[in-house]
Design a binder for these strands. Structure first.
Lengths: 177, 177
DNA sequence: TAAAATCCCATGCGATCCCATAGATGCCCG
DNA sequence: CGGGCATCTATGGGATCGCATGGGATTTTA
């Protein structure tokens, strides 16, 4: 596995520590991070959501690439640089796979005593569980509008609705060695 | 053959485990999954049905491809990412060909003590047996209407349209809570 | 030196692995 | 042609392992 997938919710303990889901740690390690080493994960406030974005080396390079695409000295680049680099924190992972979130980051995401980790492929987000619930709801509704896209992507391009039984007839001979 | 076909109904045991139909396991292996390895199957709530969609690498690639088409950092991409990646679970298959369904997924499909696996070609769905029964009934009626369109093809194909799921009724013995 | 951050160990629960059983199927050999 | 044996699948249960979490102990910083 080389992408962040799924959601997990972990607690913040009295010292402000949170366990990073084991599945995510695996991805981070593959991305160049060595647990116990001196590297860390990149974390910054999401630009358009009350959440935190985080990832490993690949994410960092992606940001670099994004900025490189904009002309030097443009307003756009300046703003983006500040918005991204300015608030980036490099968090280290302790021996037990936990990180400590600085107050500034916690505030932006409204984190109190638990964190929902949301895998988004090349990066992941950290949400206050309640807020993420709302966001997920909205996202699902919006996706309904893209159903046709999905339908074709998922293969049953013939029709929009999922009509499982309709493919039953296909003489079930298939699954042979 | 390398597609998911037919339907099977298996029980959920006290630990929340369900056997994946052997026929489906064969397809998954061909799709890149190695039993006993570290990969898994991708599973997420169906967008428009009280069921779960699942598949192997090929299905994951489709999702990736869908997102790859959207510009980075666009609202659209973010929403879609959350809905897709965020809801996806990577389930590992144990040595006996079983998976464990997380509570969140079970809830969406209303799964309690049994699961009906429905082959849909390159992916398959998991239904609560009762609900699937209703859905299949409606689907059949619909198919009747389309039969003339399908013509002779439907004739040979529908022959095997017997009731695979019913076999479990006979074989199953202690189908209790 | 006090406060805070980091490291290290203990623990409980859930997830995973492994083995045992049983029904069903298919094959071989009589 | 039929009986019995080997195999495979589904399912249950026990044992084990890993992860998340909590609580000190130790080091670092102001």
């Amino acid at each position: 596995m080389d992408r962040f997938v799924s959601t997990f919710t972990n607690k913040i303990d009295a010292k402000g520590r949170v366990s990073i889901p084991a599945a995510f740690r695996v991805v981070l390690e593959r991305d160049g991070y060595k647990v116990g080493g001196s590297a860390g994960i990149y974390c910054y406030p999401s630009l358009d959501a009350p959440a935190l974005d985080a990832g490993g080396e690949r994410l960092a390079q992606k940001i670099d690439g994004l900025l490189a695409g904009l002309p030097d000295y443009s307003d756009e680049r300046d703003e983006l640089s500040v918005a991204l680099y300015g608030d980036v924190q490099v968090l280290s992972i302790d021996g037990d796979g936990r990180i400590v979130l600085p107050e500034s980051l916690r505030a932006h995401a409204g984190l109190r005593d638990a964190v929902t980790f949301v895998g988004l492929g090349e990066k992941f987000q950290m949400w206050e569980p309640g807020r993420f619930g709302e966001r997920r709801q909205r996202a699902r509704e919006k996706v309904q509008g893209h159903r046709k896209l999905l339908g074709s992507a998922a293969g049953s391009g013939s029709r929009s609705g999922d009509d499982p039984a309709s493919s039953l007839g296909g003489g079930g001979q298939g699954a042979r060695e």
